[in-house]
Design a binder for these strands. Structure first.
Length: 780
DNA sequence: GAGTTTGAAACT
DNA sequence: CAGTTTCAAACTC
């Protein structure tokens, strides 16, 4: 055992004994001891009456499942060398904890935990993601006591409450009365039986995840962990994914499958929720709320009484103290994260069953000793998760939030669709760099999600177009940096706020989860120099529009953040950021010979004389076009006039937006189009947005990086984008979303999300749209 | 795929 | 702040 310094206590011992039947002879129960000893639950255990031995059937079952031979090396789980010890100490910081009702998390979820106490989940922002990686569930059900089940989740197992069991009517007769169960859900290792095809899919997914996140454990900050409700019977370290199915023993098999990958995959926590799953995001926190979105049914049952082979555990525990904090909190957090991860895997994994390489991957991972993450870039890169591995779950979640209710499909459907998406690299995950790297496209993310959802429900294939663009701007940009180490704005990934991943061809990359601190510090540095450095180069306003379809869309009103400085490209090539972003040049541009198809700078009637002069010069090339453009611009201009002062300001940082809406050239073909990026100013902003809606780690990340004060600027109250007028393709003005609209909750949230997400210019007005109660509630 | 062009980012 | 250098994407072949 690795916890020599902590002599096992009686309770712990009892628990261990209870679990022993499930474990292979050589397995250690260290996990239990480690996790429980100092936890409040420990006291419960002590006070509890003797624990009845596990059911024979279960034990037998488990034993079979968990043959040590079948177990994949789990050492990797805790092995992350990248864990930052310093961060670990920070763990359970309950700052700004957010309480989320379960309902809020999963409005659609069929099942919600009935336990009154359990209904509220407190999300704690913690600096160390490691904590989230694993969850251990320990249920202390004492029927005799008035208390409902007192589950302690040590591992992402099923957290069943008595009520749930009753509901299912699948209670184990033996346990119904006088039930004093301690269900320790430890890292589950699936036995051979469980290794069915579906499982393989999961495994594959898990493997991917593990690889991706091995690095990340230590690096991610801003994760959230659930704290246990002060008055709650339940100490919930893991997100509440209770599903009826989980409760049932029958589900164990499936559950086992579900959890199985956890061990194999390793520590990387399931960044189940939105961004978390996406290795590329800096803000990797998992959002509990998101997790809840998954329907219980969909979720694999909890892994009950699943033990992790000792060696595996030992391996994890044996990890250098730096990486493997023995702290109870830490361990529990880790476990929790794992659980979440399982959840995630479960989802994606199920979908991924047929995924290519899944089997191969799984086998490889399980059979081969865990790869240590080496400092070398190459190794790191190999470990990087392909973007496709975790197709932007966050996005999905986000999308879900934003998707109008009418478009919402049952969780099953959604999940399947999501899974589908995950399966299709092109769809979300592994995609080539976003079409528009410079625009932050929250919408796109939404789009992606929506598309999936829609796909299932509506059959719209649209999303698959942008292979590597998940649309939210969070996908890997596939940079190829050589000297910047991906820590400068030169690096698109860095600029976009995402970690480099496999698709990248960068050298000496430091933009990885393992270097989170470096990345953050660098970002801060850059931001200190230029607050808008990470702002999207192009600010786009209307997210929703573009979701529909690219082809007819005129570019949403958007504007280049700073204006280009093109000289030779005439703003007709992607060298021009304006052009690249699918927006016309504005007054703020200093380009020479602007011929931007999206709108020339000189076209602006309002331009100063100098501009006019320059325009004359430029006209040589195409007076004709200009005229056309001007007309168009005029139209737009009028629209902008209608804007409120604030809106106007927001709409055109540079003054007035003259962009010709109609003329947009080949925009449709251009990337930006498909996804409407709300244009947060920066990735941070984006993060805020997401965080607001989903409670994603983004928030924490943003806070982390910027500090509340700093972030506030961007958070800002109003986002120009929001105020920015969106012109529909038809030139119809799109009215900005209003607070209190009659939209369905989801719709609202989506809208709100967008609005909120819209980062405001530092000095710009107030956020018009943040009204959604739900959103607000979610927002920390 | 290698080399060139380009303009932003970084540096001084 | 302006000029220069560095950098990586975009582009060309």
């Amino acid at each position: 055992m690795d916890t020599p310094d902590r002599p096992p206590r009686a309770a712990a011992t009892a628990a261990v004994e209870m679990l022993r039947p499930f474990a292979a002879p050589d397995w250690g129960l260290i996990v239990l001891e480690v996790s429980i000893q100092d936890s409040p639950v420990f006291n419960f255990i002590n006070s509890l009456s003797p624990i009845p031995p596990p059911k024979p059937s279960d034990s037998a079952h488990n034993v079979q499942l968990f043959k040590s031979s079948d177990l994949a090396p789990v050492s990797s789980i805790f092995a992350s060398p990248h864990v930052n010890p310093a961060k670990e100490s920070k763990l359970p910081i309950r700052e700004d904890s957010v309480q989320l009702s379960r309902e809020s998390h999963s409005p659609n979820s069929v099942r919600t935990r009935t336990g009154a106490t359990s209904s509220i989940i407190r999300m704690i922002r913690c600096k160390n993601i490691v904590s989230e990686n694993c969850s251990i569930t320990c249920y202390l059900n004492d029927s005799t006591s008035s208390k409902a089940s007192q589950p302690i989740q040590l591992c992402g197992g099923s957290a069943e409450s008595d009520t749930n069991q009753n509901t299912d009517g699948k209670k184990d007769p033996t346990t119904e009365q006088d039930r004093t169960d301690i269900e320790f859900v430890l890292l589950d290792q699936c036995g051979p039986e469980k290794m069915d095809s579906s499982q393989s899919g999961n495994n594959a997914c898990e493997n991917q995840l593990s690889e991706q996140h091995k690095d990340e454990l230590g690096s991610f900050d801003g994760g959230y962990m659930f704290a246990h409700q002060p008055h709650s019977d339940m100490l919930r370290l893991a997100p509440p994914f209770e599903s009826e199915t989980q409760l049932v023993n029958e589900t164990l098999q499936t559950d086992n499958v579900y959890c199985e990958t956890l061990l194999t995959d390793g520590p990387s926590g399931s960044y189940t929720q939105n961004s978390a799953p996406d290795p590329h995001l800096y803000w990797a926190g998992a959002v509990e709320g998101c997790a809840t979105d998954y329907t219980p049914q969909m979720l694999p049952g909890a892994c009950q009484s699943q033990l992790v082979p000792n060696d595996q555990i030992n391996n994890k525990l044996n990890e250098p103290s730096d990486y493997m904090p023995m702290d109870h909190n830490v361990s529990s957090q880790n476990l929790r994260g794992m659980r979440r991860r399982c959840l995630f895997n479960e989802k994606s994994g199920a979908a991924n069953e047929g995924a290519k390489n899944s089997s191969a991957r799984h086998s490889t991972n399980s059979t081969t000793p865990r790869r240590k993450i080496s400092s070398s870039d190459n190794n790191l890169k190999t470990l990087r998760t392909p973007p496709c591995a975790l197709p932007g779950i966050g996005l999905h979640l986000n999308a879900l939030a934003t998707v109008p209710k009418d478009k919402m499909v049952p969780h099953n459907d959604i999940q399947s669709s999501l899974n589908q998406a995950s399966n299709v690299p092109s769809a979300v995950g592994s995609s080539p760099p976003t079409d528009d790297p410079h625009t932050i496209n929250d919408d796109s993310s939404q789009t992606a999600v929506v598309a999936y959802v829609g796909e299932s429900s509506q059959g719209s294939p649209k999303k698959k177009r942008h292979k590597f663009d998940n649309g939210d701007g969070t996908s890997c940009k596939r940079c190829s940096c050589k000297k910047s180490k991906c820590l400068k704005l030169y690096c698109e990934c860095f600029h976009a706020g995402v970690f480099c991943s496999e698709p990248c061809s960068c050298q000496g990359c430091l933009n990885m989860p393992s270097n989170m601190e470096t990345v953050l510090s660098t970002r801060e540095q850059i931001e200190s120099r230029n607050p808008l450095a990470f702002a999207p180069k192009v600010i786009r306003t209307e997210p929703g529009q573009e979701l529909a379809d690219d082809s007819n869309k005129t570019p949403a009103s958007s504007r280049h953040k700073r204006g280009c400085n093109c000289k030779k490209s005439s703003c007709l090539k992607k060298y021009c950021e304006c052009y690249q972003g699918g927006v016309g040049c504005s007054v703020s541009c200093r380009c020479e010979g602007c011929k931007n198809a999206f709108g020339r700078r000189e076209g602006v009637a309002l331009l100063g004389i100098e501009e006019a002069k320059r325009g004359c010069e430029e006209k040589d090339g195409g007076v004709k076009e200009e005229t056309t453009d001007n007309d168009k611009q005029l139209v737009i201009y009028q629209d902008s006039i209608n804007l409120t002062p604030a809106e106007s300001v927001l709409a055109t940082p540079s003054v007035v937006d003259y962009r010709p809406l109609v003329a947009l050239p080949p925009l449709s073909s251009k990337k930006p189009r498909s996804s409407t990026k709300l244009g947060g100013y920066s990735s941070r902003l984006e993060g805020h947005l997401k965080s607001d809606i989903l409670l994603s780690p983004f928030e924490s990340y943003a806070e982390m990086m910027l500090g509340d004060g700093t972030s506030n600027v961007l958070k800002g109250e109003s986002s120009p984008q929001t105020s920015v007028k969106v012109v529909s393709p038809n030139k119809k003005r799109v009215s900005p979303p209003r607070i209190g609209t009659g939209l369905s909750p989801i719709c609202k949230s989506g809208r709100k999300l967008i609005l909120k997400s819209i980062p405001s210019f530092p000095s710009l007005g107030v956020d018009i749209t943040n009204e959604d109660p739900n959103t607000s509630s979610l927002a920390p």
